[in-house]
């Protein structure tokens, strides 16, 4: 019809606004956030160390070499040995495994529960579901993190499983808060109303519109939380209520080594250094991702 003007079929998008998803996104991340890139590399090394520990570690981390207590770093003990003659390098590698295992399990458990609670609360905001769930979350958050951690860990006893449980409880409110906040925003979006008008079920809306839009803030939170979990696990192990001996854990190694700091500082320096690096890397990555996803930043 002559009155209908179709217009050009395609329009070139202005350069500032490009698709953020996909491989192009990763490249842009690395270019605009060099610190984040370095951090990502460190994390990859960390994960590799943890995953490949059984292959890289020169010794069994719990094996006591009784001819070499408190050996100076050198050969064959790259980072020296501890007071029971165990190779510190191997223990640092396996300690990465412990930290990673605890952190991943905690993120998965705490993250899923926190996200489910947050999404449900956010979508049904104002209703009894929201009120009930958020009251529970408020109660949980009112307890200072350290107190909660110590109480639960001491109550349940030292074991990796109990550490994960205690840390998950700590982490749930964070994910809840982020998810709920995002859901409150998302449910007001016009495209959610449009989806309802199309006949989409609540479940479908949450799945197709809620969760994918949640991904960005969750990733940032997850990365920062990773760092916190690693430190918390170390703290619990340091106090003797986290990972039980003789499983290597950086925190426990710090605790053991603290008594020998004047005589054998390598017992503390290497696990402490690994801990510092790991936490720093996750923090930097989280910062980088947050800047990356911030629309004000990305329109540079």
């Amino acid at each position: 019809m002559s009155e209908v003007d179709a217009g050009p079929a395609t329009v070139v998008a202005p350069p500032a606004v490009r698709a953020r998803a996909g491989r192009r996104g990763l490249g842009r991340l690395l270019r605009t956030q060099p610190l984040g890139a370095v951090a990502a590399v460190v994390i990859v090394l960390f994960v590799a160390a943890a995953a490949l520990a059984p292959f890289i570690a020169p010794f069994d981390p719990t094996a006591q070499h009784r001819d070499a207590f408190l050996a100076v770093p050198g050969s064959p003990y790259l980072m020296g040995t501890d007071d029971l003659g165990r190779d510190i390098f191997s223990r640092v590698l396996y300690g990465a495994r412990t930290s990673l295992l605890v952190a991943v399990c905690t993120l998965v458990a705490g993250g899923i529960i926190g996200i489910v609670i947050g999404v449900a609360s956010g979508y049904f905001a104002g209703g009894w579901v929201d009120t009930l769930l958020q009251r529970i979350m408020d109660t949980l958050m009112a307890i200072p993190g350290i107190v909660l951690l110590l109480f639960i860990a001491a109550l349940l006893g030292p074991s990796i499983r109990n550490t994960v449980i205690a840390l998950s409880l700590l982490v749930i409110p964070t994910f809840n808060r982020v998810s709920r906040g995002e859901m409150l925003r998302i449910r007001e979006e016009l495209y959610v109303e449009s989806a309802r008008a199309s006949g989409c079920s609540t479940w479908r809306i949450l799945r197709r519109h809620g969760l994918p839009n949640l991904l960005a803030p969750i990733l940032v939170v997850a990365s920062l939380t990773f760092a916190i979990i690693i430190i918390a696990e170390s703290a619990l192990s340091f106090l003797g209520i986290g990972t039980p001996p003789p499983t290597p854990s950086w925190g426990a190694m710090l605790s053991d080594g603290s008594r020998y700091m004047e005589i054998a500082p390598w017992m503390v320096v290497f696990p402490g250094g690994a801990l510092t690096l790991g936490v720093l890397a996750f923090n930097l990555l989280g910062d980088a991702m947050r800047d990356f996803f911030d629309p004000k930043q990305s329109s540079r």
Partner: peptide, 29 residues
């Protein structure tokens, strides 16, 4: 802020490593 955090961390690491290096076998054992 990330940069200054890194600086601090690196300084700490450096000091700690130097501490280890300065350490001689005579002090142990």
């Amino acid at each position: 802020r990330s940069l200054s955090r890194i600086r601090v961390a690196l300084v700490i690491l450096m000091v700690a490593l130097l501490g280890t290096a300065c350490f001689s076998p005579a002090n142990t054992g």
